[in-house]
Simulated scan of single mutants.
Amino acid sequence: MFISKKNIRVSLSYIALILIAIICIYPAIWVILSSLRPGASLYSETLIPAKITFDHYLSLFKKYPFAQWYFNTIKIAVISTFFGTIFTLITGYVFSVYRFNGRKKLMNTLLVLGLFPGFMSMIAIYILLTQMNLLNTHIAIILVYVAGSPLFFLFAKSYFDTMPKSVIEAARIDGAGHLLTFFRIILPMSKPLIVFTSLMTFNGAFTDFIFAKLVLRSPEQKTLAVGLFDLIGEKVASQFTVFAAGCVMIALPVTLLFIFMQRYLIEGLTAGADKG
C-alpha cells in the first residue's frame, strides 16, 4: 500500500503532539493526585492513590492563612492587570499611530530593556522601595508590575498597525481628542487584544514569586506563591501534599480564565501577527 510523504509527515506530527501533551499533562495529573493522597510525602509507588482524602485542602484554610493569601494575590493581580493593560495598550497605540522625534530609539530602548530578566533589577528596586518606605506593602508589588508592563508593548503595537488609519482620521475630523479616540473608538475594536494582554498580565502577577518574596515579609501580607513556598522552604517543612493542594488551588482560576477566554485569546494572537 502506497503511503505518501504528506501522510507520513502528518502522522509524525500527531505522534509528536501526543508525546508533548503527555509530557505536559503528566506532571499536572501527578500534582492533583498527590493532593488527594494521605500522608505528607509526594512520593508514591502508584500514580493513583489507594485512598482519596480532601484533608489537605481543609488544612490549607485551617492551619494556614490561605484565604488571606488568596485574597492578597487576587487583589494584587486584578489591580495590576487593570492598570498594566491600560498602560501597555496606550504605549503600543502611541508607537503605532504617532510619529515623533526619537520614536525608533525609544522603541529600541524599551525592547532591549524587555529582554533583560526582571530579577536583574531586584537590588535597585529593593533600595528604591526602602527609601520610599514601601517594603512589605502590596502597593509596592503593584507599582513594580504596572511600571514594567509597557515594556511588552510590541504585540499591542503590531495589533494597532493592522487597524485602518481612516477610522482614527475620521474621529479627529469629528473633533475627538487623543484620549477620546483611544477609549471610545480604538478600545471597543480591540477586544481580542485586551483579553490577551489582560490574561498575560494577570497570569504574571498571580503566579509571580521573585518580587513578592523580596518585598513581602509578614504572614498576613504574603501572596500565594510566597506562602506556599514557605510550607516547604523551611528545613523542617514536610507538608508536600498540602503544598500540592495549594498548587491545584492556584492553577484553578488561571485555567478557568484561559478556557473561557480561549476564543478571544486566539483572535488576539492571530490578529496581532498579521502585520509587524
Score class of each variant (00 low, 15 high):
Val254Asp: 09
Ile186Ser: 10
Ser96Lys: 00
Phe240Glu: 05
Ile127Cys: 05
Tyr145Val: 15
Ile173Phe: 12
Leu199Lys: 02
Met261Trp: 00
Ser218Lys: 07
His56Ile: 02
Phe240Ala: 08
Ile29Ala: 13
Leu135Gly: 02
Leu179Pro: 11
Arg217Pro: 05
Val226Gly: 07
Ala212Trp: 00
Thr91Met: 01
Ile142Ala: 08
Phe240Leu: 02
Ser34Cys: 12
Thr53Trp: 10
Asp274Lys: 14
Gln131Glu: 10
Ala140Tyr: 06
Thr73Glu: 03
Asp274Gly: 14
Ala124Val: 09
Val236Tyr: 10
Leu224Gln: 02
Leu228Thr: 12
Arg217Glu: 09
Met261Leu: 15
Phe71Cys: 07
Thr162Asp: 00
Ala251Arg: 01
Ala225Tyr: 06
Ala147Cys: 12
Asp161Gly: 03
Lys213Ile: 00
Met120Trp: 06
Lys275Tyr: 06
Ser218Pro: 06
Tyr126Trp: 07
Phe209Trp: 03
Cys24Thr: 10
Leu42Lys: 06
Phe100Arg: 05
Phe61Gln: 13
Ile20Leu: 13
Phe95Lys: 04
Ser198Gly: 13
Ile32Phe: 15
Arg37His: 08
Ile266Gln: 07
Thr88Ser: 07
Leu199Pro: 05
Phe196Leu: 14
Tyr93Trp: 15
Val236Ile: 12
Asn72Met: 01
Leu110His: 04
Gly92Cys: 12
Met1Phe: 14
Pro38Leu: 10
Ser59Asn: 14
Glu169Gln: 13
Thr241Met: 00
Leu257Gln: 02
Phe229Gln: 12
Ser121Trp: 01
Asn108Cys: 04
Ser238Leu: 11
Val146Gln: 03
Ala40Met: 13
Glu234His: 05
Leu199Phe: 13
Gly272Ser: 03
Gly227Glu: 03
Met200Glu: 01
Arg37Trp: 00
Leu180Asn: 04
His178Glu: 14
Gly233Trp: 09
Leu42Trp: 12
Arg37Gly: 03
Phe83Ile: 03
Val94Lys: 00
Ile52Tyr: 15
Gly148His: 03
Met249Val: 09
Lys213Arg: 06
Ile23Asn: 02
Phe153Met: 04
Arg217His: 12
Thr91Lys: 05
Ala245Leu: 11
Pro188Cys: 02
Ala77Phe: 04
Lys105Ala: 14
Arg37Glu: 01
Asn203Ser: 11
Leu257Tyr: 10
Leu187Ala: 02
Asn72Ala: 02
Met120Pro: 00
Val146Lys: 12
Val167Ile: 15
Gly148Cys: 05
Lys105Glu: 15
Ala77Pro: 06
Pro253Ser: 10
Ala271Lys: 12
Val195Trp: 04
Ile8Phe: 12
Ile123Asn: 06
Arg172Gln: 13
Ser198Asn: 01
Pro38Met: 12
Gln239Trp: 10
Val242Cys: 09
Phe258His: 06
Gly102Ala: 06
Met189Val: 05
Asp274Leu: 14
Thr207Arg: 14
Val167Glu: 09
Leu89Val: 07
Asp55Glu: 13
Lys213Pro: 04
His178Cys: 05
Met249Phe: 09
Thr73Val: 07
Asp174Glu: 15
Leu129Trp: 03
His138Asn: 13
Ser11Pro: 08
Thr53Gln: 03
Ile8Asp: 07
Pro164Gly: 11
